[in-house]
Design a protein around this nucleic acid. Structure first.
Length: 375
DNA sequence: TTCATGACCTC
DNA sequence: CCTTGTGTCATGAA
């Protein structure tokens, strides 16, 4: 990109809110501060079925992690009568996140909100490419978040998004880690490959089979072998990432590509009369969000999670963009019916609905719809 | 271009 | 570990 070429050296901050959901809960109820706090996604199947979404450090130090089944977390904390289990309150976190992002945006030449609790700030211009100046920005922003929002975060400072992110992850909570360009290799090399952003359990396993254990091992690996093993995109990415190379600009996303909702069924079933009402609810939720963002869709998909936890998807592409939730639901129902036949015997555990091929909805409504905008 | 699948992210 | 939910991207096939 032209602007990056013009500046000598990019300086990027990655700001990662500490144990965000749990911290939001602590902030709302300060008396929870020294208790283990576990924020949970309850699936509604049994009283305790579901997983941990986030946990504060008191709980983490006792082994509680996000993704852990709630029952497991309860066992780990059974000796702690003061442990608190709370359901996720996404609306609250969204509002908090919006305020945090607004505060952070003011500190950046270019800003990118990467997720609900994480953002990248390009501070190349305002820091003049000077790391010390950038670190002062980071300190100031941490101070403001603490005083104005009573929230702590961890910040990484680096020459690109990848290194800034890895730096932010390096020390938590309330961390501030700097990776200078010339230190990138020594910072990276000793870390296990699975710590590299974009390397999950699958890729890590395959790398381990090749004898690759650290990012340093990966960096010295033959690029041709990497391409052969992982394909063009991932192979190229791994090679570059391991060297600490990353050209991704700090830039906000254009817009969303899809909207989806998933729900867990009360019991495993293949009874359409039990599944369809859930589908209706999902369609409602999606319609609301699509309306709020003024988006129409041209593709409808259902996702089905079966009793054996395997996943199936079925997609239908419409002739033209629409905002009509009735079409969404009718299409989803047809997809569900054909899918149920195809997987004969197997029961469903969870059901999901997704719209995609989104576009700004053009106003072309019937008179009735025009008079009742809510329908 | 469309579709299905799968890896990954993160609280 | 008995398993939630949201979204993006890549790949291979048709």
């Amino acid at each position: 990109m032209a602007l990056a070429a013009a500046s000598v050296q990019r300086v990027i901050l990655c700001v990662d809110m500490d144990y965000f959901f749990a911290q939001c809960e602590e902030r709302r109820r300060p008396e929870l501060q020294n208790h283990p706090v576990v924020v949970c996604v309850y699936s509604g199947r049994t009283a305790t079925s579901g997983v941990v979404s986030a946990a504060n450090y008191v709980a983490r130090n006792l082994g509680v992690r996000s993704g852990l089944p709630i029952v497991r977390a309860q066992k780990l904390l059974q000796h702690r009568a003061d442990a608190v289990f709370l359901p996720v309150d996404h609306d609250n976190y969204e509002v908090t996140s919006a305020r945090v992002m607004e505060l952070l945006r003011a500190h950046a030449d270019r800003f990118e909100s990467a997720s609900i609790d994480e953002a990248f700030l390009d501070v190349s211009t305002r820091s003049g490419g000077n790391i010390h100046a950038a670190v002062e920005h980071a300190r100031e922003l941490k101070r403001q978040l603490r005083t104005q929002e009573r929230l702590s975060c961890s910040v990484g400072v680096g020459p690109n998004k990848l290194l800034a992110k890895m730096a932010a992850d390096f020390q938590k909570p309330d961390g501030l880690t700097i990776v200078r360009p010339d230190e990138a290799a020594s910072f990276f090399a000793p870390l296990p490959v699975e710590r590299l952003y974009g390397v999950g359990p699958k890729s890590a396993g395959r790398l381990h089979e090749l004898g690759i254990r650290t990012i340093g091992d990966l960096a010295s690996m033959d690029p041709a072998l990497l391409l052969k093993t992982f394909g063009r995109q991932l192979g190229r990415y791994l090679h570059r990432a391991a060297q600490g190379t990353d050209d991704e600009p700090v830039a906000g996303r254009e817009g969303r590509e899809q909207i989806s909702r998933i729900a867990t069924l009360k019991e495993d079933t293949r009874d359409v009369d039990l599944i369809y009402p859930v589908l209706e609810q999902l369609a409602q939720d999606i319609r609301q969000q699509a309306n709020a963002e003024r988006l129409g869709f041209r593709s409808v998909a259902i996702l089905v999670f079966m009793e054996d936890l395997s996943v199936r998807t079925r997609t239908a592409t419409l002739e033209r963009l629409t905002t009509d939730a009735t079409i969404m639901l009718r299409t989803a129902r047809e997809l569900l019916l054909t899918l149920l036949e195809e997987i004969d015997g197997l029961k469903l555990r969870r059901i999901g609905l997704r719209i995609a091929e989104l576009g700004v909805a053009v106003r072309e409504r019937t008179l009735t719809e025009f008079l009742e905008p809510s329908s």
